[in-house]
Simulated assay, not measured.
Amino acid sequence: MEFLVNLDVDDLERAVDFYGSVFGLRVGRRLGTFAVEMLGGPTPIYLLLKDAGSAATPDGSRQRDYARHWTPVHLDFVVDDIEAATARAVTHGAQLEQPITAQAGHKLALMADPFGHGFCLLQFIGRGYDELAN
């Protein structure tokens, strides 16, 4: 099985800069004027141009809004140096929503990208998630 990650954004070039500068992803392909494939992680991330205010649901009852929003799905980016990655993300427009915390097996920073998508930076320490397993 294969899966893809798609992120709606209202500014493709700003999104390419953010995900390239912060996570070291690179442009794989440009798909017309409406999408960019970003490579360099375990699965491609597709940045999809969707105008703010456009219909977010088939019935048009909800519109896209790029202010901070909540969704039960988010990305975790595993990094080697969470302090450096957090600083790089903030420099490129991310918001640090919860300072870095150390927990059993990992450090975690809760963040939002410039398009309102929540994400986490995660650095494994010790035995990583194995420290949580029974």
Results as ranks from 00 to 15, higher is better:
36 V>R: 00
37 E>G: 06
37 E>I: 05
39 L>S: 10
39 L>P: 02
40 G>K: 03
41 G>T: 09
45 I>E: 00
45 I>A: 00
46 Y>F: 15
48 L>E: 13
49 L>I: 13
51 D>L: 09
53 G>V: 12
56 A>S: 15
57 T>F: 10
57 T>Y: 06
59 D>R: 06
59 D>W: 06
60 G>P: 03
60 G>H: 06
60 G>S: 05
61 S>Q: 10
62 R>H: 12
62 R>T: 09
64 R>A: 03
64 R>C: 07
65 D>T: 11
66 Y>K: 08
68 R>L: 13
68 R>D: 13
68 R>C: 05
69 H>P: 00
69 H>R: 14
70 W>T: 13
72 P>K: 08
73 V>W: 07
76 D>A: 15
77 F>A: 02
78 V>H: 11
79 V>I: 06
86 T>M: 02
87 A>G: 07
87 A>I: 05
89 A>G: 01
89 A>K: 00
91 T>M: 13
91 T>L: 15
92 H>Y: 12
94 A>G: 02
95 Q>K: 13
96 L>W: 01
96 L>V: 07
101 T>R: 12
102 A>F: 03
104 A>P: 09
105 G>T: 05
106 H>Y: 07
106 H>S: 00
107 K>W: 04
108 L>E: 04
108 L>K: 10
108 L>P: 00
109 A>M: 07
111 M>A: 12
113 D>E: 08
113 D>H: 01
115 F>Y: 03
116 G>W: 04
117 H>R: 11
118 G>F: 08
119 F>D: 03
120 C>A: 13
120 C>V: 08
120 C>Q: 05
121 L>N: 03
121 L>E: 05
122 L>K: 12
122 L>P: 05
124 F>C: 05
126 G>T: 08
126 G>V: 04
